[in-house]
Amino acid sequence: MDSGTHLVIGFGLAGLAYIDPIVASNPAVATAVLVGTVVGSQAPDFDTLLRFKSNASYIKNHRGLSHSLPAVVIWTGLITLALMLVFQGLPVGHIALWVFVAVAFHVFTDLFNTYGTQALRPFSHKWVSWNIIHIFDPVIFLSHIVAIFTWSVHLARPQIIFPLLYAFLAVYYVWRSWHHYRLESRLYQQDPQYADGDRYFLIPTFNLQAWQIVKRRSDGHFILGEYRNRRIQWVDEVACAVHPAVEASKLHKNVAAFLYFSSFACAELRSHEWGYEVRWADVRYRHRKQYPFVAVVLLDQELQPIDSYVGWVSETRLGKKLRANT
C-alpha cells in the first residue's frame, strides 16, 4: 500500500487496540500503543532510504528483507524497546503485541498489491504479489478516515468503531480476492485469440470496476489490455527482442536488479551508429501508452556499457538522464 494508507491503518490499529482492557483503561499505555502502531505501520518501508544509495539498490531490495519474516520480529523488538525507554513502567507484552500487529499487517496488505514483497524470506526469495488490491485503494483509505473522524469527535467508542471497520475490511478483502480469481480464471474463455500456453494476469487499478490485463503468450511476448464491463479490449502488443546486445545488457548491475525484481520484463532493442540501446520495461505498469518503469543500458559496438538508467521515468526525461544522443 502507499504510505498514506499505511499511516491511517496505524491510527486505525491504535483504535482497535482499545478492545484490550489494559490499553482502554490506561491513557499512558494507549499513547504508547498509538505511537507504536503508527511507527510499526511505516517501519517495513524504511528501506526507502536505499534510494540515496542508488535506484538499482532500491529496486532490488525495497519490500525485500525489510518485509521478511525475521524483519517482522526485529521491527517489533526495536520499536517496543524504544517505547519502553520513553514510556517506562508500561506492560511490555501489550505494547509488543500491538506493535507486532501493525508491522505484520503492513506486510500482509502489501502482498495483495502488484509490486509484491519477499515476505517468505528466508525460506524463499520469490516475490509474492497477488494483484488483488491497488496500491491506493479508496475503500480502504476512506473507511479508515471515516472511522478515525468518528473516534476523534466522540460519536462512538473505539471498541465499537474499529472492530466493525476491520470486520468490514476482512469481508472486503475476501470479496476482492474471490472476484479477482473468478475474473482472471475466465479470461481465456473470453479471448478469441487464446492459444495453448497463454497466461493471463489481471492487474487492479484505482477504479474498482476496471482492470488491466497482461497476457503472456507462449512465445514470451506480451499483449496488454483492459477489462471493463465484462469485456476485454486489447490495447498494445509488446514483442521482446532477442539479440546479443540484449544478453549483454543482463550483465549490467541495473538490469540485473530490474530482472531480479520483475518477472514481467521485456526488452526492446534500438540500433544506433554508436552502438545499441537496450530498454527493459515492466509491462505491468502501462501509463498513457508508455511503460515508465524501465532499465536502460547503452552499449557500444563491442557491447561495452556506455551509460545506464533504472527506475521510473517518462519518455521525455529519459533522454536527459543518458549521456549518449539517442
Rank of each mutant, 00 (worst) to 15 (best):
F112D: 05
E184I: 05
V99Y: 12
A295L: 12
V86T: 09
W175I: 04
L298P: 01
V278A: 06
Y227R: 10
V139P: 01
L120Q: 06
S54W: 08
G275Y: 00
L83P: 02
R217W: 01
V23C: 02
F105R: 05
L111A: 15
D198G: 04
V296T: 15
P44I: 07
G4A: 13
L259T: 14
G89K: 08
D307H: 11
R279Y: 11
N131C: 01
L298S: 13
Y173C: 07
H180A: 14
V107Y: 03
P163Q: 02
V171D: 03
L69K: 00
I59L: 15
H6F: 14
S3H: 07
N229V: 09
K60G: 08
L90Q: 13
G64S: 02
I213G: 04
R230L: 09
E273V: 08
Y58F: 15
Q290I: 10
P192D: 12
R286M: 11
V171E: 01
D191C: 09
Q193W: 01
G89W: 07
Q42A: 10
T326Q: 14
V139A: 08
S57H: 09
Y291N: 03
F112H: 12
A265Y: 07
A17E: 03
Y166Q: 13
N131E: 07
R199Q: 08
E273C: 04
